[in-house]
Amino acid sequence: MLTFQGFSKSYAQAPVLEIPELTVPAGIHWIKGRNGSGKTTLFKVLAGLLPYKGDIFLDGRVALAQQPVLHRQSISFGEAEPLYPAFITGQELVNLFAKARQAPEGQAHHLAEALGATAFLPKATGAYSSGMLKKLSLVLAFLGEPSLILLDEPLITLDTATVQAMYGLIQERHRQGTSFLLTSHQDIEMPDLPLTATWLVQHQTLSLVTSR
């Protein structure tokens, strides 16, 4: 699914991540790592939010740096601690994402229902709690038909029912061929998901820990 070739990411000459050669197969992957190890940086790079050096290919056909539009069509990202302008409603963001990602008819409604976000979407995000913001970010991340969905700390601030609903959505989309990269500190919850592999971000690189 993801192929790294000579990849490196640094901040002001200070290297954060270096992955010379690596292939991450399709499936559901759990990325572990200590605070500050570079997990979020890796996700932001993959989401197209940060520039990098080297090459990353998705499914062997999308060169992320050279095809920015296709890149963003194929990968979506749910942030760990999402924050949106206080005056914009969740529904407006959903509409924007659904249009830009060419989401199928009714998908936004289905996602909002599944994650229990329907009631508050018409309100301005400034009135949301952190859990509501997280639900909104998940709805946005699942919109469209991306090949890969990145979820950074998807479990934090969510109630138990929503966590189960999210696991259900991940499994549903996985069956349809979507891959997932997840980061989480709460490893005890992960048995609920059919993980393909577990990876560790450590010593400025990504390495395989276990695979099924």
Partner: peptide, 9 residues
């Protein structure tokens, strides 16, 4: 806002 950069445009 932050999100426009993520959108396929």
């Amino acid at each position: 806002l932050g999100v426009p950069r993520m959108l396929p445009m």
